[in-house]
Amino acid sequence: MSTDPIAARFARHTMTVLHEDGLYRHLRFEDPDGQYPFELITWPFNLVVKSGWTFHFDIDATPDMFDLFRRTAFPGEINPGYWSEKVRAGRDEIEGFNPDLFEQQVKQYVVHSIRHGEAPRGIGAEVTREIFEMGDISHEAGARAALADFRYNDWDFGDLPEWDFSDYTPGFLHSCHAIRHGIDLWTTSRKPATA
């Protein structure tokens, strides 16, 4: 069983086949409580996942998209980097500002500056107060503004355009796990029962 909290959402899901004719499939998945339902729809060279977010994947080299997703990740795992390259519709939902990544990078930069003697005494407390407690860092524009406005004894965060606070969105990761789990359930349902 996966320890990933997103993957764990699908642990109790069952599958309903709404349509299946070769590579033309429409499958619905949900748990007994109706939580996190999703659908997988396929046709040659295409897969659409509808999971609260909708992503359309296509690739000219692989008629059965289930094969693509199986071959490009270890069993039970996802490969968001490679899979994101195959998204045709929903591209603007793949990556977004990640406040946890922002906080991690800011703290690493401050620690690095302290260790190398580049930051003035008291910088850690001032960054915590000015940026993490008083700054509006729930969105990228506010986070970047908090960094740009920060000055403490002539110390600042340097060249801000180089900083990247984006990561895969929770919706894209949720959809990747839904795809993986749905394909695994479908594959298991196709295996002959052993005596």
Results as ranks from 00 to 15, higher is better:
residue 62 T to E: 15
residue 72 T to A: 03
residue 151 R to T: 09
residue 100 D to Y: 11
residue 53 W to R: 03
residue 86 K to H: 14
residue 52 G to D: 01
residue 132 F to R: 09
residue 48 V to F: 02
residue 192 P to F: 12
residue 60 D to Q: 09
residue 75 P to R: 05
residue 73 A to N: 07
residue 86 K to T: 14
residue 138 S to I: 03
residue 54 T to F: 03
residue 29 F to R: 00
residue 55 F to R: 07
residue 180 R to L: 03
residue 162 E to V: 11
residue 54 T to Q: 14
residue 22 G to Q: 14
residue 49 V to E: 03
residue 187 T to L: 10
residue 28 R to A: 12
residue 163 W to N: 15
residue 177 H to L: 03
residue 52 G to W: 01
residue 69 F to E: 05
residue 128 T to F: 06
residue 141 A to F: 03
residue 55 F to I: 08
residue 3 T to G: 12
residue 58 D to Q: 13
residue 86 K to R: 15
residue 15 M to L: 10
residue 149 D to Q: 07
residue 85 E to G: 15
residue 140 E to K: 04
residue 186 W to N: 08
residue 195 A to G: 13
residue 57 F to D: 05
residue 74 F to P: 02
residue 38 F to E: 00
residue 108 Q to V: 11
residue 145 A to T: 04
residue 37 P to V: 00
residue 22 G to S: 11
residue 148 A to K: 10
residue 87 V to K: 13
residue 18 L to Y: 07
residue 56 H to K: 06
residue 172 F to T: 06
residue 43 W to E: 12
residue 29 F to V: 01
residue 60 D to W: 08
residue 170 P to A: 14
residue 149 D to G: 08
residue 36 Y to E: 00
residue 1 M to Y: 11
residue 32 P to Q: 02
residue 142 G to D: 00
residue 179 I to D: 04
residue 14 T to E: 07
residue 33 D to C: 01
residue 4 D to R: 04
residue 11 A to Q: 13
